[in-house]
Amino acid sequence: VSEWTEYKTADGKTYYYNNRTWESTWEKPQ
């Protein structure tokens, strides 16, 4: 699942961004 990158927002929430599909999600990808 290497295309997903984990980021943190300014208020400390974690989200995930897909470099291949430009998708972002709050849930941890499978």
Rank of each mutant, 00 (worst) to 15 (best):
V1K: 10
V1R: 11
V1S: 12
V1L: 13
V1D: 13
V1Y: 15
V1P: 14
V1G: 13
V1W: 14
V1F: 15
S2Y: 09
S2G: 14
S2V: 07
S2M: 12
S2N: 11
S2K: 08
E3L: 07
E3S: 02
E3F: 08
E3G: 09
E3Y: 07
E3C: 11
W4I: 01
W4H: 01
W4R: 01
W4E: 00
W4A: 00
W4M: 01
W4Q: 01
W4T: 01
W4Y: 04
W4V: 02
T5G: 05
T5Y: 10
T5E: 10
T5C: 15
T5W: 08
T5N: 05
T5I: 14
T5V: 14
E6D: 02
E6Y: 05
E6H: 02
E6N: 02
E6K: 06
E6Q: 08
E6M: 08
E6R: 02
Y7A: 07
Y7I: 11
Y7V: 11
Y7W: 10
Y7D: 01
Y7G: 04
K8F: 09
K8R: 12
K8H: 09
K8S: 07
K8L: 11
K8T: 13
K8M: 11
T9M: 05
T9H: 04
T9Y: 05
T9D: 11
T9G: 12
T9A: 07
T9E: 01
T9S: 09
T9K: 02
T9R: 03
A10R: 09
A10L: 11
A10W: 09
A10N: 10
A10Y: 06
A10M: 09
A10I: 12
A10T: 08
A10H: 12
D11K: 04
D11N: 08
D11I: 03
D11R: 02
D11Y: 06
D11T: 07
G12Y: 00
G12L: 00
G12N: 06
G12M: 00
G12R: 00
G12Q: 02
G12P: 00
G12S: 00
G12H: 01
G12T: 00
K13W: 07
K13H: 08
K13I: 10
K13Q: 13
K13C: 14
K13D: 08
K13M: 09
K13L: 11
K13T: 08
T14M: 08
T14S: 10
T14W: 04
T14F: 07
T14A: 05
T14Q: 04
T14N: 03
T14D: 01
T14P: 08
Y15I: 09
Y15M: 13
Y15R: 04
Y15L: 09
Y15T: 01
Y15N: 00
Y15P: 00
Y16V: 00
Y16M: 01
Y16W: 15
Y16L: 01
Y16A: 00
Y17D: 00
Y17R: 08
Y17V: 15
Y17W: 14
Y17P: 00
Y17K: 06
Y17A: 03
Y17M: 10
Y17Q: 07
Y17N: 02
N18I: 01
N18E: 01
N18F: 04
N18V: 02
N18H: 08
N18P: 02
N18M: 02
N18R: 02
N18K: 03
N19F: 08
N19G: 07
N19W: 12
N19E: 13
N19T: 13
N19Q: 11
N19L: 10
N19S: 12
R20Q: 13
R20P: 04
R20F: 14
T21M: 02
T21Y: 05
T21K: 01
T21F: 05
T21L: 05
T21Q: 02
T21D: 05
T21I: 03
T21V: 03
T21A: 03
W22H: 15
W22P: 02
W22T: 14
W22D: 15
W22N: 15
W22V: 05
W22F: 15
E23I: 07
E23M: 04
E23Q: 06
E23G: 02
E23H: 03
E23Y: 06
E23W: 05
S24I: 15
S24K: 14
S24W: 15
S24H: 13
S24V: 15
S24T: 15
S24F: 15
S24L: 15
S24M: 15
S24N: 04
S24E: 10
S24A: 12
T25M: 12
T25N: 05
T25K: 11
T25W: 11
T25R: 11
T25G: 05
T25F: 12
T25P: 05
T25D: 05
T25E: 05
W26E: 11
W26M: 11
W26S: 10
W26L: 08
W26K: 03
W26I: 06
W26Y: 13
W26G: 06
W26Q: 09
W26H: 11
E27W: 09
E27R: 04
E27Y: 08
E27Q: 11
E27M: 05
E27T: 11
E27N: 07
E27S: 07
E27L: 08
K28S: 12
K28A: 12
K28M: 09
K28H: 10
K28W: 09
K28I: 13
K28V: 12
K28R: 09
K28N: 10
K28E: 08
P29F: 06
P29R: 03
P29N: 05
P29E: 04
P29I: 05
P29Y: 04
P29S: 04
P29A: 03
P29Q: 05
P29W: 06
P29V: 04
P29T: 03
P29K: 03
Q30A: 14
Q30Y: 10
Q30G: 12
Q30I: 14
Q30C: 15
Q30M: 13
Q30T: 14
Q30L: 14
Q30E: 14
Q30W: 13
